[in-house]
Design a protein around this nucleic acid. Structure first.
Lengths: 190, 190
DNA sequence: TCCGATTGTAAGCGACTGCTTACAACGCTA
DNA sequence: TAGCGTTGTAAGCAGTCGCTTACAATCGGA
């Protein structure tokens, strides 16, 4: 709420406005999904007139694309391959806060068409490509997809369905079980 | 399209009308998700006036609930515990046809509130409870949730994202990889 | 200081949503 | 065959959606 000291001080700052819209959109898309997040919600959360959303991003689809483009590759670019799986898992399991919620936005919005679908697919490909380097088996691509699918499923059940005991389980316990099982898929995953 | 010989012959048959609505709703919810399926779509697909949807089911939420209640417990009731995981996996991987698409409807609609959310949770609980009987470990519930999450994730990546190579992979290959890894979670899973 | 471009605002448009209502057609029973 | 409850239909209501437009406020460069 009071992340930055701004009362009437952020007026006429397009960069800050765009950032506020991206932040608000990332939060709401992750929480509610694409369909159930309205442009009015986003603008309201960002404290910005909703017309500016269309001025700076063109459409709701394009804004979603921008969110994934900004946040989606962050972890991908800053994590070594062996740790990508466990890092994504841990990031997903981390308690509320400024964590990277791209995964949730991703799966919350499955079913969208248009530009959003394209970038979603692209990011998925990149993750899988990295994970596929962790095994020498001939079906490395399939194994990587299955590992990625597990990540998505855990995020889905935990964050979206809120199913217990998974939703409230200790991240360490989950990591231990998942990584043990995953090692039969990707031998070099940490 | 031409499943039953009915031109002007099915008039004034409330049972058939309700069945047509349930079938159409199951198909569309699985394909597009809850939010992106409109009551007009459902009524159109069923060849039924949309007002009848509300007469017989009360609301779109209640119709979704009815779909899950009708189809969701089918496999649960007819499959022995040891085979539930692999049967669900195989059912999900089966080619197009009159297969049970409850899982897709389920995950496609994550995020809905109301009655739909309640029955969704209930069915998830029942699946997990059965899967939890397949291990003697103390954290059986968590292990079952993780297995269930994998199912959901695979369905998500395959059917919703359509990601290759997973989407086009041989069901036998997928089953082999998944079941091998799953056995570290649920020892008695087939 | 003035001007043009940029940034923010208010209002609303057309389309679509879930849902309701008023009514016609029909078929069973007496 | 008259009456009545059930089934099907057409039309529309109120609200929300993404998006657009017309305009005011503000700033930097001349």
């Amino acid at each position: 709420m009071a992340t930055q000291p701004e009362q009437a001080g952020r007026r006429r700052d397009s960069a800050a406005t765009q950032r506020a819209l991206l932040d608000a959109a990332a939060k709401l898309f992750a929480e509610r999904g694409f369909d159930r997040t309205t442009v009015r919600d986003i603008a309201g959360q960002a404290g910005v007139n909703q017309a500016l959303l269309f001025r700076y991003f063109g459409s709701k689809d394009a804004l979603f694309e921008a969110v994934l483009a900004r946040d989606g590759r962050e972890q991908l670019a800053t994590t070594p391959p062996e740790r990508l799986f466990s890092a994504s898992l841990r990031s997903m399991l981390a308690p509320e806060g400024p964590r990277n919620r791209t995964l949730e936005a991703y799966l919350r919005s499955s079913g969208s068409d248009g530009a959003a679908a394209a970038i979603r697919q692209e990011i998925g490909e990149e993750y899988a490509r990295v994970l596929a380097t962790l095994t020498d088996e001939p079906d490395a691509g399939l194994r990587a997809d299955l590992a990625l699918a597990w990540l998505m499923g855990i995020a889905l059940v935990r964050e979206v369905s809120g199913k217990e005991p998974l939703a409230g389980a200790d991240p360490d316990d989950i990591c231990r079980l998942v990584l043990t099982a995953t090692r039969t898929l990707l031998e070099r995953a940490e």
